[in-house]
Simulated assay, not measured.
Amino acid sequence: MAVSDPGASAERTRLAWRRTGLSATAVALLTARPAFAPGAPLAVILGAGLAMAGWAALIGLAYRRAHGLIAWPPRPGRRTVTAYAVITAGFAVLGTVLVTL
């Protein structure tokens, strides 16, 4: 018979938030990369700055959500998850724009 461990699911979710933050870091660095090309247009440099601001927001939200999962019982993170999804969609749009410039 399996033993239920309600803390294990919160731990797995916390680790998933950490992995998501690491992948957001990779995406942000790839999005900012065109700004370091010689003669990069101002729009690309501003887009890279916007990407870094979005990255900072994503990392802050992931940190907040991970700490919300430490509490017992874990606090729900409806607004955090929604904000994270919106910023991630913004990253997709920004990346598309930067690639097409």
Rank of each mutant, 00 (worst) to 15 (best):
L94S: 03
R79Y: 03
T20K: 10
T96I: 05
T82I: 14
L58E: 08
A35V: 00
P73M: 09
P74W: 05
A62E: 01
L50D: 11
I70Q: 12
R64C: 09
F91A: 05
S23L: 07
V81C: 12
A53H: 01
V97Y: 08
R64Q: 14
V86D: 02
L30T: 06
H67M: 14
R75Y: 08
T82K: 13
L58N: 04
I70S: 10
R18Q: 12
F36K: 05
V99R: 12
L69Q: 04
L50F: 07
L15G: 13
R33P: 00
I87M: 07
T13W: 06
R75H: 12
L30Q: 08
T96A: 13
A62M: 02
V81F: 13
Y63F: 11
L98R: 02
A85G: 09
W55V: 02
A51V: 04
L42R: 06
A24T: 07
G39C: 01
H67P: 09
T80P: 06
G77H: 00
G54M: 07
V27A: 02
R79Q: 12
G95A: 11
A57W: 07
S9Y: 12
T96L: 13
G39Y: 00
S9T: 15
V44I: 06
G60N: 06
P74Y: 05
L69V: 04
D5H: 14
R12C: 13
L94G: 03
I59N: 04
A37K: 06
M1T: 15
L15F: 13
L61P: 01
A37D: 10
S23H: 04
M1D: 14
R12L: 15
V97K: 05
I70C: 07
T96W: 12
L101A: 11
P34K: 00
G21Y: 03
D5I: 14
W55F: 12
F36M: 08
L15W: 12
V81A: 15
W55A: 06
I70A: 12
I45W: 00
A57N: 06
L42A: 09
A62V: 01
L69S: 03
G60L: 08
A24S: 11
F36W: 07
R33W: 03
I87S: 05
R12T: 15
S9C: 15
V27S: 00
R75W: 07
